[in-house]
């Protein structure tokens, strides 16, 4: 069953006009914001496929920036996101790319400030659901049909075990998990799909663990 909840059908509550090109785009921006952990001072957004052709009419540009500001899909400030970004000193540029993407609704986000940078590729698969297919050069393979956690962390022993223990304590079952790193002992990524909803309390508890850099949840 692709759709599990009645609120996948009667929902989400969102700013229009498109669940895929607006709500999905907000969620891609919001994941980038949560993983970065703060509002970036600059952002370069590249659109591919249908996103590249229709982003202005659907407000996909506005929606991505709203997500980068930490707004959710139903935030009424969403239509004013570009003005709010300017007022808050977030410098944004957009480009429509010619390259043919694997999925028609694809966006690549590079964001940063004087303390760091983050690069992420997201796709919007319909009805406001999204998948993150690449993060800081790490390829991800999440189904998008279950709640998921993305955790950037230091590559140290015990970190994966500690995260799994917290999930077990909250009676959350792991359905699929990927771990990857660029170099031994450096920055690493855990992508975890689970069967139960993820609460804010749980996210906060994970953030308190040693060697955890950033935690973001996909869907809920």
């Amino acid at each position: 069953m692709k759709y599990k909840s009645v609120f996948d059908i009667i929902g989400p509550v969102m700013v229009g006009p498109s669940s895929s090109h607006t709500a999905g785009a907000v969620r891609i921006g919001l994941v980038a914001y949560k993983l970065f952990g703060r509002k970036p001072s600059w952002a370069r957004v590249s659109f591919y496929g249908s996103f590249a052709e229709t982003y202005r009419g659907h407000g996909t540009d506005v929606a991505i920036v709203a997500g980068l500001l930490g707004f959710d899909t139903f935030d009424e400030r969403l239509p004013a996101a570009l003005d709010i970004a300017r007022a808050e000193g977030l410098d944004v540029s957009f480009s429509a790319e010619e390259a043919i993407p694997h999925h028609p609704n694809t966006a690549r986000l590079c964001i940063g400030d004087d303390r760091g940078e983050l690069e992420l590729v997201g796709i919007s698969i319909g009805g406001g659901k999204i998948e993150i297919v690449e993060l800081n050069g790490f390829a991800l393979k999440l189904s998008g049909h279950h709640p998921a956690l993305l955790i950037m962390h230091n590559d140290r022993y015990g970190t994966i075990g500690a995260v799994a223990s917290v999930l077990a304590k909250h009676a959350i079952n792991i359905g699929h998990m990927e771990v990857s790193r660029k170099e031994k002992g450096k920055e690493a990524l855990m992508a975890i799909e689970v069967d139960q909803p993820l609460t804010d309390d749980l996210i906060q508890e994970l953030e308190q663990l040693p060697n955890i850099l950033q935690v973001a949840k996909l869907a809920d």
Partner: peptide, 21 residues
């Protein structure tokens, strides 16, 4: 019309079909 104007709606089952229900 509210959906097209970037207003807040509830997708039923999608944003594009949100008016019928």
């Amino acid at each position: 019309e509210v959906n097209a104007a970037m207003g807040v709606i509830c997708a039923t089952p999608t944003a594009g079909a949100a008016g019928v229900v």
